[in-house]
Structure formats: C-alpha cells, structure tokens
Design a protein around this nucleic acid. Structure first.
Length: 435
RNA sequence: GUGAGUGUAGCUCAAUUGGUAGAGCGCCGGACUGUGGCUCCGGAGGUCGCGGGUUCAAUCCCCGUCACUCACCCCA
C-alpha cells in the first residue's frame, strides 16, 4: 500500500456530508452579504507570499512548499489565500468590474508543519476579502458575518475576540513602549518570549508559559497607544458591533501572526478543538494591496479553517435514504429491474439496486442497510402478472402495483402534500432528516 | 524543528512473565428453496507498522526506522 502523505487526509463518505453542509452554509451566508466567489490557483510565484504574507513570518520562513519548476521559476503551493486574492484583485482590476469588491474563496492551503488536532499540511480555508473600503462599518459587518457563519453552522460555544493593533503611524510607538515597559524583566521571560521581544514584541502577548503571565499582564495595551484616527476607527467598529448585537470580547492579547494587519484584528475561538482553537481569524490590512504592486486600497478579511469548522459542527446526519431499493429475482427479472431503476431515477427518485445473482435475503439485507423506504420486488410472479411488489420497509407491509404505475405512485407518495413539506429529494444536499 | 504516547482482523480493542493470536461490531452464508431489521449457528478475513539484533524459538525483550495521535513553536 502506498499511504497518503503526512498531514494530508481523505474525506470519506460519512464525513463528506458535513463538508457539503458547511460549504453550502458558507456560500449561502457569503451570498447574503454580497460576496462573489472566486477561485485562484493553488500554485503561485514564491515572491507573492514572501512580499504578501511577510518575509519574517514563520509561514514564509519555514512552512512553504516551495520549489523550482521545470522552467526555472520559483513557485510555491499557497500557504494562505490573501496574497492570491490581492493579486487577482490587482491583476484583473476587479474594482472596475464589481460594484464593491467583496470576494470569497474556498480551497486547499499547504503548510509544512507537524500535524496535530485541527492542523494539517493540506487544509482548507474559506477566505473572505473586501478591497477599497476603509469605513469601520465594514469592519463590524465582516465580524458580524463571521459570527453569523459560525452560528449558522450550529457551533454554539464560540467566542468573538476583537482588538486593534494600530496603523503604520502608531504601531511602531507601541512596539517601543512594549520594549521599554519590559525593561529588565525581559530576562525573566521564557526563551521564546525573549526571541519575540527582539523580532516582534507584539507576539509576546501570545505566550502561554505560566511564568510569563505576570509580566505580560503588566504590559501596556495596544489600544492605549492608538493614534486619533485608529482610536475612532476602533470605537466605531466596536460601537457598531454592539448595535448589531454581536457578543464579543476586546482582548489586548489578540495579536495576529501575520505582518500585514492594521487596525482591527479579530478571531473566533471554538471549544473542543484542542490546542488549535481558532475557528477563524482576520483583520484589516490597509497597506497590503499597494505593497503587492496595486493601487493604494484598503483591505479587510478573514480566513476560516474548514477542518476546524467541520470539527466543531454538531453531529450531522448520514447519507440520504433511498426512495426505493429494487430486488430482482432470477435472470429474467434483471433487465426489467434495471429499466425500472432508470425510470425511477428519471423521475428524480433515488433508486438503488443490487448486483450479481444474490438471494432475496441478501438483497433485502442490503436494502435494509441503505435505509431504503421501499423495496420493489421483481420476480417471476411479478413478471408474469405485469406488476411490482412494493414493500414498505417501515411497516413491512406489501402492495402490488402495476408496472406502469410504479413510478407515478412512488413519486406521488414522496411529493409534497403541501408547500410547507418539501420532498426530501428536492433538497440540494442529500440528508436523512429522519422523519 | 522539539517532546510525549500509541501501532495486533475492515472498525474498537484483548492476550501471550518469549512457544507464530482472540473477542465484540461489521461482512458473507445458513436456520427461513421469494422476504430485511431480532435470535441462533457457521464461515471468510491477520506480513502482530517495517528493518535489524538477542534466542532453539520474538507479536512480546533490545536497537533503529516509519506512521499515527496529542502537545510545543506557529497558525485556520
């Protein structure tokens, strides 16, 4: 056997239903807020992420699947979507084509990390981005949408966390204030934190080491160092969030790992996810489009981990129960049975049939396992009489129906009695709703 | 990249203080020559992760290696 490579995994029947449901909810919610779907390549020039994600980030320094292709080009499997989204925005001048550039994308990302719960080398993200809008109202709307998405997925124990990391004007001053406040206590920090203090002081807030906590708690807060513009932007964002009824917590410890964030940052945390408890995270990145060679446009967005969303979703239901399972007895019945199956399917019913010459018991056992509502029996008697025996698998009762009436009868049985009760088969996603 | 734990049937797991392995579930068949779900009976299915070492003999002990899981780093 040649196994799947580390950190990748197959999504099998039984689990795929949850993914399909998650994707359906994602598309529905994004659509309601005016987002259009786009798909970008999973492979890009390495340079795009070096500049976009940031040369100093761990993602770029040690986690990229980067290589040289046969033409000598430095390319990489995308570790995140935002730089690709920015590239597409710039390359196609999307602001000329869309009233407001609100776009989302769904697809695989690749990072060379040690896998653990909720983290894989190939994983999937929903990526949502808006370009060209700096109004704080959008910050609030984006966060509200993210919360709505999580709620729509049925994830209950989620927490919205918001912060502001300032802009190019005020953020450096805060960084210096951190170092100053640290003073000689820097020596008491853990090794990771001492490294952070030198490279990116903001990240000290992320530390989980107990001995660092008293020191971290005494540090100044980013929101105390915001310039006037950033201050009012943050106040407007949180004010609108409250007005929108979004339950959130402001955390000065929320500093995100990517370099490009400005002003608003946010995350939604989920319970029961293990150590990797961020369901989604994002923020504003007002300088990124220009840094990647585009016009000076604001940007804001978030990425949600699909594996984590699916993990946090409540248990769904299984595959849809077939409307009919056809049991054929004897060679003479096989061809008519397949014709019947075809006719049922043409009538939009789900029809299954067994293969090979198996006993009636075996076929019924299989029918039972599929949770089929009806079994249609075709044997010598039925062929001779021109009818089909319809067995109701719930009650066990049987009726005879003329061969030419079977499809209509079955379809009629399953069609809605009233508009409030849409038939199962009309649903875009096959789910057994267990009635 | 670091640390810990775990690798035995399709799945969940036993067992053997070293003598080449069992259960439950699932699957297939029978009891019931054309009637599922319950019950009973039977059957198929295992390089004991892989490689090496010790030994008369290794699934068990030793070394190595790989994989998985969880955690760190970091992030979705």
């Amino acid at each position: 056997m040649i196994p799947a490579i580390r950190g990748t995994h197959d999504i099998l029947p039984g689990e795929i239903e949850r993914w399909q449901q998650a994707e359906q909810v994602v598309r529905d919610i994004c659509g309601r807020y005016g987002y259009r779907e786009i798909r970008t390549p999973v492979i890009e020039r390495e340079e795009l992420f070096a500049k976009g994600t940031g040369e100093t980030t761990d993602i770029v320094q040690k986690e990229m699947y980067a290589f040289q292709d046969k033409g000598g080009e430095r390319v990489t499997l995308r570790p995140e979507a935002t730089p690709s989204m920015v590239r597409a925005f710039v390359e196609h001048a999307l602001e000329q084509h869309l009233p407001t550039v609100k776009i989302f994308s769904l697809g695989p990302m690749f990072r060379y990390e040690r896998p653990q719960k909720g983290r894989y080398r190939q994983f999937h993200q929903l990526d949502v981005e808006v370009f060209g809008v700096s109004d704080a109202a959008l910050d609030a709307e984006v966060i509200e949408m993210a919360a709505a998405l999580v709620e729509a997925l049925g994830i209950e124990d989620a927490e919205v966390v918001v912060n502001s990391v300032g802009c190019a004007e005020c953020r450096p001053a805060f960084g210096r204030a951190l170092v100053t406040a640290l003073g000689d206590r820097e020596a008491d920090l853990c090794g990771d934190c001492r490294r952070r203090a030198a490279v990116n002081p903001l990240r000290i807030f992320d530390c989980k080491v107990p001995s660092c906590q008293p020191i971290v708690d005494a540090l100044p807060h980013a929101t105390d160092y915001l310039c006037d513009a950033c201050r009012s932007h943050f106040d407007a964002t949180t004010g609108l969030l409250e007005a929108l009824g979004v339950a959130f917590r402001v955390s000065h410890r929320l500093v995100r790992g990517l370099d490009y964030y400005t002003r608003t940052t946010f995350e939604i945390l989920g319970g029961r996810l293990g150590a990797q408890n961020a369901l989604l995270g994002g923020g504003r990145y007002d300088g990124l489009v220009r840094r990647l060679g585009g016009p000076d446009r604001a940007g804001i967005g978030f990425a949600a981990g699909m594996e984590r969303l699916v993990l946090a979703m409540p248990d769904g239901s299984g595959p849809r129960a077939p409307d009919a399972f056809i049991v054929a007895l004897g060679d003479a019945a096989r061809q008519p049975a397949h014709l019947l199956a075809r006719d049922l399917r043409r009538a939009a019913l789900t029809a299954l049939i067994d293969y090979g010459d198996r006993s009636m018991k075996a076929q019924l056992r299989r029918a039972n396992r599929t949770s089929a509502r009806h079994v249609l029996i075709l044997g010598d008697d039925e062929l001779a009489q021109g009818h089909v025996t319809v067995k109701d698998m719930t009650s066990g009762g049987e009726t005879r129906v003329g061969r030419d009436d079977v499809v209509r009868n079955l379809a009629g049985d399953l069609l809605p009695a009233s508009p409030e009760q849409p038939a199962r088969m009309r649903r875009p996603i096959g789910r057994d709703d267990g009635d």
